[in-house]
């Protein structure tokens, strides 16, 4: 199960990175002034990279197996209640 979660996260990570790259490209390509484009890209990319890195780090700190076991404990299983 953890592998599936990691695979989903990888897809999400690539997707978000691609959107971030496209935002940078868009600002650089279509901005009317080169100076303000560079300033906007620096602002966007620095915060975006910080969040992305923190996101990846916090993802790998999560004990997904433990979390799923906890979640299973809260899951409604009909067979448990079928005796009465």
């Amino acid at each position: 199960m953890t592998e599936i979660i990691r695979l989903f996260y990888l897809i999400l990570f690539i997707g978000v990175s691609a959107v971030g790259l496209y935002v940078c490209y868009h600002i650089l390509r279509y901005s009317l002034s080169r100076k303000s484009a560079i300033a906007a890209v620096i602002l966007f990319a620095s915060v975006f990279l910080l969040f992305l890195l923190a996101n990846a780090l916090s993802f790998f700190q999560v004990d997904w197996d433990g979390l799923l076991r906890t979640a299973e404990g809260f899951t409604y299983v009909p067979s448990q209640y079928s005796s009465f």
Binding site: V16, V19, G20, V23, F44, V47, F48, F51, L52, A54, N55, S58, F59, Q61, V62, D63, L67
Partner: peptide, 17 residues
């Protein structure tokens, strides 16, 4: 706690985007 931090960070990332 790491899971909540991950969720909060994900929201911030999406909000920034």
């Amino acid at each position: 706690a790491p899971f909540f931090l991950f969720l909060e960070n994900s929201f911030l990332l999406f909000l920034w985007l």
